[in-house]
Design a protein around this nucleic acid. Sequence first.
DNA 1: GTTAGCACTCAAAGGTGTCGAGTGCTATTT
DNA 2: AAATAGCACTCGACACCTTTGAGTGCTAAC
Lengths: 351, 351
Amino acid sequence: MLFFWGLAMNVELSARSRQILEAIVEDYIATAEPVGSSAVARRHAMTLSSATVRNVMANLEEMGLLTSPHTSAGRIPTEKAYRFYVDSLVALRQVSRDEKRQIINHCRKAGAGLSDILKETSRTLSQLSNYMGIVVAPSFNSDVFRHIEFIRLGHRKILAILVSSNGAVQNRLIETEEDHDPEELVRMGNYLNGMMQGLTITQARERVLAEMKNEKTKYDHLMSRALRISEQAVTVDGDDVFVEGQARILDQPEFSDAARMKEIYEAFEKKGIILQLLSRCMSADGVQIYIGSETSLSRSAGVSLVTSRFVTSSNTVGMLGVIGPTRMGYSSVIPIVDYTARMISRLLSEA
Amino acid sequence: MLFFWGLAMNVELSARSRQILEAIVEDYIATAEPVGSSAVARRHAMTLSSATVRNVMANLEEMGLLTSPHTSAGRIPTEKAYRFYVDSLVALRQVSRDEKRQIINHCRKAGAGLSDILKETSRTLSQLSNYMGIVVAPSFNSDVFRHIEFIRLGHRKILAILVSSNGAVQNRLIETEEDHDPEELVRMGNYLNGMMQGLTITQARERVLAEMKNEKTKYDHLMSRALRISEQAVTVDGDDVFVEGQARILDQPEFSDAARMKEIYEAFEKKGIILQLLSRCMSADGVQIYIGSETSLSRSAGVSLVTSRFVTSSNTVGMLGVIGPTRMGYSSVIPIVDYTARMISRLLSEA
DNA sequence: GTTAGCACTCAAAGGTGTCGAGTGCTATTT
DNA sequence: AAATAGCACTCGACACCTTTGAGTGCTAAC
């Protein structure tokens, strides 16, 4: 639907109009100030006079691609214009050698744990883009079970450790109804490890629930206890989200006022919003771009989101991207996100 | 030294001056606007005229307790005034029944893991105080070792799981020089568990290093490998810090401008600063208060910090507190921090 | 179709004047 | 001697004005 718009406009615009729109968008991205007709004529060393540019701009405004904040200011691009720009105008920059180096180094240097890598990635994205970096860990639930283990911590207190084949680890403290001694726990572990081999965490959970209703296991003390405990262990709720570089967006002039800022920060404290937002881009391959209201992050905040998914060795998908103002340097952010996603995918597939 | 100042001033001020200073500080805390002499006379239904109050205020200014932002505005308290206020004026509010309920509920409802509890506590502090809540987990290194366990994840890849008696868990992915099969890992685990029983993590680490030099173990293949791996496992670097309610401080008028905000947020992205800051309050018991530059957080930012430490069953100490503007509602924040620290201590001691 | 010219608009910037909260000082009261 | 009333003074805040200049839309000429 969004893409359709882009194509539709693509057809309707003359080459010159497109060129001018591109100039305006890029100017505005660079300066954050309304762009006037003469600025366009000048900056682009075009063979056109400002008057001509004005006519074109009036056209573009009528088409809903530009607006003026007031009668005699320059014009600024609408969301529609950004959409069009991103779909068919933007000339993507190459990822520089230096940036590549940074991305790769950061990936490697992180402690080898999955969450360390992802956190570091988030930071790298933020540094390279100068906006906010965001990474959503592959959903633990859809990852493949590797190992479960119980450790007795005290009277009726057990620590359950659940490892997925990604190398992601979940710890859960469980209070049991009766006390279990270490040997019992080992046997439970063996039983469950056998049962869950090869399943995803979600499937494992279903399997546990099914087994609990099974007549055979119902009357086996050890098994039924093991199942009851493991039911808690395999119930993993939230996915991990790593957000870095929150301070950076304060550099952007459009976020200098406090009310606006607050909206964004509050959105981030409720991580649920982000997850909901990002689950959308899990399905499609390649870089996805959400502009302004398309993000449904907060109507008024004027933020955009450039994301891509990455895959792990066990074929679960995660999400990474950059959040910044609508007026974002798409030409460099898009390649950075793309490249980073590829690198992370490769790194995690090796493992 | 700071306390000495408080006492010194205590002596020098007449009862009336103190009363007026208190009124000014409290007014300023409530309104964030410079307080004028007539406001003091009026608000306090004092038997004094504004002219008299003026004289007293001139005195206080000379003593460095007040400043005027410009000739004909009211006066605002200096850091010194806050210090004095906190040391000897403030009338602490009782923690209300409702607040107590919230604190206790939040503690309990959290998933039983240590980090869940602390994160939730941080959020509670933020909610009750309307400032930023901060909790530093007890240093893992000084906690008592409980259990170590190795899980083979793949060729030459081991997951080490280290549990302390607090119930804190550390996972670490380790790449080994040779491949180890699961049975070998179990034996290594047994050996190390025996060796480290009763030691703190730091001691355990020293013990490992010592054993590695020991002639006897040097020539035992299993042991020497176990030691080499465990050396990595017991090397834990950073402590966990939980900061919640960052959006809340945007409500404070003094932080409405972006430059100021940025300073604070950047301080928080480098968690190191916080740790350094908080390590100071680990030693002393009871509520500690750091005002403005005393925090050494960022000279210009004008933030204060109210903290208290808490203890766990294994006698390690953590830190919790509230960060807000110097102009902070000390009378309610101090009791909240105090009460929360006590509750958390109790909760963690039970475990 | 392009451009030059011109009248018009409007925000931003700067200047002026008033208002009032607040001060310091001094003379007066208690 | 301490407290107060009175008064002149200061200075930011606000409202109001003008000027400036960037930018527009329109029209007539090329």
